[in-house]
Amino acid sequence: MIRGKNTIGLLGLAALLTACSGPTADKAPPAPAASVLPEWTREQKVDLGRQHKTAEDLYKALKDQAKGGQKLAWDAMPDWTGVYSRPPLNGFTFDPDQPQGSLPTAKLTPEYHEKLLKRVEDLKKGIEWDPISACRPPGHPRWLTEPFTREFIVTPNQTWLINEMVNDIRRIYTDGRGHIPEEDRIPIPNGDSIGFWDGSKLVIHTNQLQPGIYQRANPDYTDQVETVEIWQKTDDKTLGVDVWVYDPPALTEAWYVHQTYGKLSDPDLRIRYWDCSESSNNSVFQNKQGTTEFKNLNFEKGKP
């Protein structure tokens, strides 16, 4: 009798799930609206960065060109599902198109060029300290470079860009809100991101960021750094991102780079919680010479 009740319950649940499961094979989901923004060449994208003095100007120009963009509908969203990662092109340097063995492609102010040269010279002497060594978040725009697993969660009002490293989430508000008012801004690692959809392209403006480095052996950025990004699926297995970085104290012009994230084929892959305190063998510190040293390596049986 109990089994009979359970069977009826399961059938009812199955019917409900079928009814709620969205489009069936004979009813394909509607496609997102067509994109208005054109497909530019790399040179045109570099020029686009030069034509606009600030990230805000570029973002507004793109939004005007897209006539404000469109609101996503739950039944017509781009499919960004899956677990992705950034391919280790040319190491993990910020610009994947940086020629092997050359300096990063950013046009730096003299002060920041000197800082970069010193970083590279120090590295040659075996001196390197990465500011995220004690498990600080990488922060944006460095966030774009880290090589771990990622997920991208699209909803009509927000898109979450997730990197496994330090359980790092960037929230992109696409509900029409503006940035936090200037007088109330506090710099935070991933800043404040607003965006709009142009067809299946997500255009993002990020400000309110903290200083950092683009990656090891890469330049510094300041708390005035801002970015504009255009994210889109370039094929079934790839998300491509055009990025323009503006940072007047450090960059003489916008730094354009193109990032890609490839979909991983293992269907069983899971993103694991990232807890830096799991092993004391991972603790490091910056020594008097300015380089990295382990704090407490211990491999004796039963320890740590």
Partner: peptide, 21 residues
Amino acid sequence: AFITFALAAVTPSVAHHSSTM
């Protein structure tokens, strides 16, 4: 030439912290 040599020697073998040790 020095910078080119130094960058060629960069081996990002360990993410999170530098591998200079």
